[in-house]
């Protein structure tokens, strides 16, 4: 790929970089326990939780497994389990 003048980069291009491989623990969202409050989406530093028609979904391509969503969930609907490599 050719370099750009002044090293200018397209905004949003980090989506090409999958940080999910950093993860040591995987958050598992229990949709039955989830009350759709959106706290998990709100506290994710990696913008890796998305609202979809069926409810909230964790994007494992980018989730680094920090565990903030699980700790902050008021319904305790997210469990962290060791990531299997």
């Amino acid at each position: 790929m050719k370099i750009t003048i002044g090293a200018v980069v397209e905004g949003g291009s980090s989506l090409q970089y999958r940080t999910g491989s950093w993860r040591l623990e995987r958050p598992i969202l229990d949709h039955d326990a989830c009350k759709d409050c959106g706290r998990c989406e709100e506290v994710c530093p990696d913008s890796a939780v998305h609202w979809e028609e069926a409810g909230f979904r964790i994007d494992y391509d980018y989730c680094k497994g920090c565990g903030l969503c699980a700790y902050e969930c008021p319904e305790e609907a997210i469990q962290m389990i060791p990531e299997e490599k």
């Binding site: 090409q16 993860r23 959106g38 990696d46 890796a48 939780v49």
Partner: peptide, 17 residues
């Protein structure tokens, strides 16, 4: 809020948490 277009997207290299 979740449905809003995210202006700071995934794939950045901050430490977890």
């Amino acid at each position: 809020a979740a449905a809003e277009e995210e202006l700071f997207v995934s794939g950045h290299r901050a430490c977890p948490g």
